[in-house]
């Protein structure tokens, strides 16, 4: 690998973004690659909008990814995906869940939520990107673990062509990171993510 691989992972605090960035980091480290990620802690952690920057490579410097510089964007909530689209490099890849989590501001204005959902495809396509939308909520339930939407997306991102880590490398890191009684359901969620991505491709 010549260059560093840059990826942003976005969603709402509590959706498990730190868990998947952790799994990717574990896999990269095992492979002998350097990892550098930048996380949000403190005030915005719960229920707030969250972005994690992740870099994998041989020589890494700054921990953040500026606007227009990320090769891929992984979104766990579709409105958060839209919020952070600007970080994607022109022509970059987006894998986003169709999940919608309502912020308090939308509880006051129900129409805004409906309108945003209707317009999501149109809005995402205003950016120069390849966009893959996955029903992570449904697939996670199918796997038997509603909380594992993040792992569905981890499976999906394992299919990115120039991603420096293989399916097997990610899967084995996944197994070391989740509680042992949930390994089976998580692996199932991971595999459903792979399938969904293959279908989309």
């Amino acid at each position: 690998m010549e260059e560093e691989y840059r990826m942003v992972l976005v969603g709402v605090g509590g959706q498990g973004i730190l868990t998947i960035s952790d799994i990717i980091a574990i896999a990269a480290q095992k492979k002998g690659l350097r990892v550098l990620s930048s996380e949000v802690h403190g005030m915005a952690q719960k229920g707030g909008s969250v972005i994690t920057n992740l870099k994998i490579g041989k020589e890494l410097h700054s921990p953040t990814i500026p606007v227009g510089c990320s090769k891929a964007l992984i979104g766990l909530e579709e409105n958060e995906t839209l919020r952070y689209m600007k970080y994607l490099e022109p022509g970059g890849l987006v894998i986003t869940s169709k999940t919608v989590l309502y912020p308090v501001t939308w509880k006051k204005d129900k129409n805004a939520a409906v309108l945003a959902h209707e317009k999501i495809d149109e809005n995402l396509s205003k950016f120069d990107a390849r966009i893959i939308r996955i029903n992570a909520e449904k697939l996670a339930s199918e796997a038997g673990l509603a909380l594992a939407q993040n792992i569905v997306l981890l499976g999906a991102l394992s299919q990115i062509k120039d991603f420096p880590l293989s399916v097997e490398e990610l899967k084995s890191a996944l197994k070391t990171r989740v509680p042992s009684k949930y390994i089976e359901t998580n692996v199932k969620a991971f595999e459903l993510g792979i399938e969904a991505m293959k279908k989309a491709n």
Partner: peptide
């Protein structure tokens, strides 16, 4: 179209 998502009381 992007909602303001302030941190909230749990």
């Amino acid at each position: 179209y992007i909602p303001f998502r302030p941190p909230l009381f749990c």
